[in-house]
């Protein structure tokens, strides 16, 4: 057995761009997921029957089917709906929908964890419902769910690897191209695994640092 890692070291530039692609997918996917998450929770809180049913169904379907099947479905469904998107945009859409279903659950838990008295105190002071949510409920709720959202972001970052199945531009698809040219499968994927590990560790560390800064107030 001989291992030859020169094939990956020679391709370091392509890999670096792959990392950029992965991070972009993760960041935009997470941003979309948060929009869906906040919107979904707003719909659930309005307690109207049909919209609640739709959001609940969305969450259940997404959580109980594989991401790979979801991304294939979206990839083939969009052209039928007359929409042509490049694979990278499609991947962001799929990541956002998938992450959004999990974000709805997380955010709902966070909002529910804030005591009703906080809202009442805000209302009694004459603030309106929207102001109460923005200025009183939101930050403590985000603090409560920040750890869950952080792990969700890491999970989403790792999920981006699956987007290689529709040839979106990210680290794994770059790796697969190198593999196809060099046939050095193990070396390529071993290296990619290491890169992903570094990405997750750095992201975890950065998110923790951001969290310490953003939610510095003492709780108890």
């Amino acid at each position: 057995m001989t291992l030859d890692f020169s094939v990956v070291t020679n391709a370091w530039q392509a890999l670096a761009w792959g990392v950029v692609g992965t991070m972009l997918l993760a960041v935009f996917g997470m941003a979309l997921a948060m929009v869906i998450g906040v919107g979904g929770v707003a719909v659930l809180r309005a307690q109207r029957r049909i919209p609640t049913l739709l959001v609940t169904a969305f969450v259940e379907v997404i959580r109980n089917t594989p991401f790979l099947v979801q991304i294939y479905f979206i990839f083939f469904a969009l052209p039928f709906a007359g929409i042509r998107l490049n694979p990278t945009i499609t991947a962001i859409l799929a990541l956002g929908l998938n992450g959004g279903a999990y974000a709805i659950e997380i955010i709902r838990g966070g909002v529910e964890s804030i005591p009703k008295g906080q809202t009442e105190a805000g209302l009694a002071l004459g603030l309106h419902r929207g102001e109460v949510f923005r200025m009183i409920v939101l930050k403590p709720a985000l603090k409560a769910i920040y750890p869950s959202l952080s792990s969700q972001f890491i999970l989403l970052t790792l999920t981006t690897a699956i987007c290689t199945s529709i040839s979106a531009y990210e680290l794994t698809s770059v790796g697969q191209r190198i593999e196809a040219e060099t046939f050095r499968s193990f070396e390529v994927y071993f290296t990619l695994t290491g890169i992903y590990l570094v990405i997750s560790l750095l992201t975890m560390w950065a998110l923790a640092a951001i969290g310490r800064r953003a939610f510095a107030y003492p709780d108890r």
């Binding site: 790792l158 994927y189 071993f190 997750s200």
Partner: peptide, 21 residues
């Protein structure tokens, strides 16, 4: 940390191509 910090897909690839090696 290794398995929670890397994609399952990479874990499959590494094992799949690594075992024969």
């Amino acid at each position: 940390g290794l398995f929670q910090g890397t994609p399952l897909l990479m874990q499959l690839f590494v094992v799949y191509f690594g075992l024969p090696l």
